[in-house]
Amino acid sequence: MGNPIIFLLLAVVAIGSAIGMLTSQNAVHSALYLVLNFATIGIFYIVLNAPFIAMVQITVYAGAIMVLFLFVIMLLGAEQLRGVTDVHGGERVHRAVAGLLAAVLLLASALLLFQSEAPTTAAPMLDTSPTALGLRLFAGYVFPFEVTGLLLLASMIGVFIFGKTKKRGKDA
């Protein structure tokens, strides 16, 4: 499933950008780090023989969703907001527990991975062209497809309602 060197390279970039997003005090920087993360994941998709999904990832995730995020950050003036830095007692406990849980999670996963005896040989390459994907989508997943359409409609309506203001003339 790909060249190990490329994998490691990309993995480093992905994890690095993730940690950057996590720790950055500037919201815009965080968003940009996330865009980088998404792009890397997109490349991973290409490596994993999912070209269409990669395109969708770049277009929708990195291109639409992150842009939306950046819009909102600009709108709220969050690039000027600094993160709150007071660390009181409750916060410490909170952080400790979170860290502990994350460690447990990593540990558990590592355990699982090293213990599993599942075969690791990949299956032969598939036809993953958009045509094939489209056929699979519309052959077996028509109903979820339609429901997703409804979901998008609902979210549009929801956004519209949330965006309404009571006062006239004032902008959103």
Binding site: H94, V97, A98, L101, V104, L105, A108
Partner: peptide
């Protein structure tokens, strides 16, 4: 959120 995460773990 911590509670949810705790449960999941």
């Amino acid at each position: 959120a911590l509670g949810v995460f705790l449960g999941a773990v």
